[in-house]
Design a protein around this nucleic acid. Structure first.
Length: 460
DNA sequence: AAACAGTGCGCG
DNA sequence: AAAGCGCGCACTGTTT
């Protein structure tokens, strides 16, 4: 019988559990007064929006269809009202054949009611899951989320009560609403230190693809920019920040996680309108693509290949080049690694863990990367906590989100804290883990003194 | 009342 | 040959 760890892996989890317990004990300061007001204000806003919604003729149709069972919160009922009663076209079904009613699918329904309904859902989520989730758990002004090491299949961590690892950050309005409640202790800052691109770097330590290693090491090179150029048929100097963002999140990462061209093509094509993409010279992206001979997405069937001249066909070719010509060593590693699993029934991580049991291809490929990337952070957390004690610092570690650590730091320890982080997270770790063959980097963001978490920013 | 499956959505 | 990885939480609608 294979043990699920080697000695060093056991030691990492043991020390990690102790450190995370201390982080939980420290707790995060909450602005309770703000939190209560935010909950009340947001509930009032939702009530207003609901009043507006009630005036819509859609509500009459809804009530007629469902009678006393009508429930405006029900996604299933919304699907029936829109796609059966009102005759809108439903572009996608769920796994069980029901109408899909997530935000992405509903974007195709052009009706004010749907926009208002989604707005309410968004605020409901913010207040119901996040604001109330925090409120329920606060004690004496402190929040003590749990951090678990025994739950994730990949030997990553998880967090609950409340989950500290999924607080809103991508939507400015919702991020501000929720993160304004999270503050440093008096006279201090919150300092968040992230590993930059740690999963890409750790993956490179497994597959050792020379082109990928160059991308990571050479700061003049930029993989996401280059892939934006390829996906949208641009010259490299015509790639905007948004086009790079689209390529990164709709092509590169999905490809790494095991997605493929029909899904990537759809997503990249939708991204053009959603993100209002243009060339750097200001030419709308669809117009630019038309000048390159591409005017339509084309059929994205899983069975037939797309027609030449369509965007889907173009992305198919980009994908072929991506794995066949750009990163062939990475592609070969994926094949070899999966074959090895099929022979032996288990996989090992660079950090000494063993994952066994039934896994799908994409899981086999992703688990060792996801796990080991987190273990870099865990290793550093343990040593940062020890250093804080050793040097009798007043700084406190208060949270952790997979590849970043959150500190609550007095103003006069700011520099010392950041130097310590650089020393442990980068210099010491690179020396300790010989298998790290590409440099890791960190990025530091700070709130103002006494400023809440939504105000975090890079210095300079 | 409690448990369960299904769906949707927040994060890395 | 398959076709996006890992989590936690809230809610609906049904079953126990």
């Amino acid at each position: 019988m294979l043990l699920p760890y080697k000695p060093q892996a056991y030691q990492l989890l043991h020390d990690g559990a102790l450190t995370l317990a201390e982080i939980e004990g420290n707790g995060i300061q909450i602005d309770v007064e703000y939190l209560d007001k935010a909950i009340a204000d947001t509930n009032a806003k939702i009530a207003d929006l609901n009043k507006k919604l009630q005036k819509s003729e859609v509500v009459e149709k809804w009530k007629k269809a469902f009678g006393h069972k009508a429930n405006l919160n029900s996604n299933e009922q919304l699907g029936k009202v829109l796609f059966e009663v009102m005759g809108f076209e439903c572009p996608e079904r769920t796994d069980t054949g029901r109408y899909k009613t997530d935000e992405k699918t509903l974007a195709s329904v052009d009706h004010q009611f749907v926009k208002d309904w989604l707005e309410i859902k968004k605020l409901d989520k913010a207040v119901g899951t996040f604001l109330m989730g925090i409120r329920r758990e606060v004690f004496d002004g402190l929040l003590h989320p749990s951090f678990n090491l025994h739950l994730a299949e990949t030997f990553r961590s998880s967090s609950d009560s409340p989950n500290f690892q999924n607080l809103p950050v991508r939507n400015l309005e919702i991020m501000t609403l929720v993160r304004s409640a999270i503050i440093p202790r008096k006279g201090r800052r919150l300092i968040e230190i992230d590993y930059k691109g740690v999963e890409v770097a750790v993956a490179a330590c497994y597959h050792k693809d020379p082109t990928m290693i160059t991308y990571i090491k050479d700061k003049t090179k930029d993989m996401h920019r280059d892939m934006a150029a390829a996906c949208y048929k641009l010259k490299v100097d015509q790639v905007t920040k948004m086009a790079r963002y689209a390529a990164k999140n709709k092509f590169v990462f999905p490809q790494f996680y095991g997605s493929w061209y029909p899904d990537c093509a759809k997503s990249l094509w939708q991204g053009i309108d959603e993100l209002k993409l243009e060339t750097k010279n200001g030419v709308p992206m669809k117009q630019h693509l038309a000048s390159q001979g591409i005017t339509e997405l084309g059929e994205c069937s899983y069975k037939e290949k797309p027609a030449p001249g369509t965007f889907a066909h173009h992305i198919m070719m980009v994908e072929k080049h991506f794995w066949g010509k750009r990163f062939p060593v990475y592609a070969q590693w994926k094949r070899d690694h999966f074959e090895r699993y099929k022979t032996t029934g288990y996989i090992t991580t660079k950090t000494g863990f063993i994952c066994q049991g039934y896994m799908k291809r994409n899981e086999v490929i992703n688990y060792p990367v996801q796990g080991a990337a987190f273990h870099a952070l865990l290793w550093a957390l343990i040593r940062m906590q020890r250093a804080i004690k050793k040097y009798k610092m007043k700084s406190l570690l208060v949270g952790q989100i997979h590849d970043c650590v959150l500190g609550d730091v007095p103003e006069n320890e700011d520099a010392q804290f950041c130097e310590m982080a650089q020393d442990i997270m980068v210099d010491k770790l690179m020396k300790a883990w010989k298998w790290l063959i590409v440099p890791l980097e960190i990025e530091i963001e700070k709130t103002p003194v006494d400023g809440s978490w939504n105000l975090k920013a890079c210095e300079k």
